[in-house]
């Protein structure tokens, strides 16, 4: 996984609450057995006017000019500013894969759906929760100033505006540690293999019905 320590990038404001994972990446693209290549179909139904198909050349498709990411000023944005309950719905990790593949590194919102939030960290994508009124302020600033960028420091847990105003955010230590170092958390867990085995052995004694069914 790609590490993330600091990131500064152009902000795209997506002014809509309850953005669900079906919207982030529609189901026809979930048929892929790969982890990459989802970027061109990120927000497919919002971004294009026609119905998207897997393995299609998206450069020829009719674009929805009203959609925020299609506006020139937000081209190459890497920080997505969003509203409440971003990423609700299905557990598909294709959603963070698509956001990451498109070029996003950071998503800022007043709240995220739990599974999506968790999936982001596994893919080098940092979801940041900020208070609603701060997010409102960032929306106003990003819409008012063309080329508006935010600087994110995961080490210091801050988001800083171009005017130098800094906001603190919370993130739990384990997720932060893995993202800062680009760690494979399976490897981290396997360091505990003996502890897992001991637990398992004890469960085999006390709850034998939990073992042997899927054979």
């Amino acid at each position: 996984m790609r590490a993330l320590k600091q990131h500064q990038g152009l902000v795209a404001p997506m002014d809509r609450s309850n953005v669900d994972t079906d919207m982030i990446i529609p189901k026809q693209f979930l048929k892929s057995i790969k982890r990459t290549g989802f970027g061109p179909n990120l927000f497919d139904e919002l971004r294009y006017l026609d119905e998207g198909k897997p393995d299609q050349d998206c450069s020829e498709r009719p674009i929805n000019p009203d959609f925020v990411l299609n506006q020139d000023r937000y081209k190459n944005a890497s920080v997505l500013l969003a509203r409440t309950n971003f990423g609700c719905g299905s557990s598909r990790e294709h959603a963070p894969w698509a956001l990451e593949d498109y070029g996003f590194r950071v998503i800022i919102a007043p709240s995220f759906a739990d599974i999506f939030y968790n999936n982001c960290f596994k893919n080098g994508l940092l979801p940041i929760v900020l208070e609603e009124k701060i997010v409102d302020q960032l929306f106003n600033e990003a819409e008012a100033q063309e080329g508006y960028q935010l600087a994110v420091d995961l080490e210091a847990k801050t988001v800083t505006t171009p005017a130098g105003e800094a906001f603190d955010f919370e993130v739990d230590d384990f997720r932060r540690h893995c993202l800062l170092n680009g760690l494979d958390d399976i490897g981290v867990t396997l360091e505990q293999a003996e502890v897992i085995k001991a637990y398992e052995e004890q469960r085999r004694q006390t709850a034998p019905w939990l073992f042997g069914a899927g054979n």
Binding site: S90, S91, I115, N123, I186
Partner: peptide, 10 residues
């Protein structure tokens, strides 16, 4: 509960 694909692997 539901999990993402990285967690399926985990």
């Amino acid at each position: 509960h539901g999990i993402g694909t990285s967690e399926v692997e985990h």
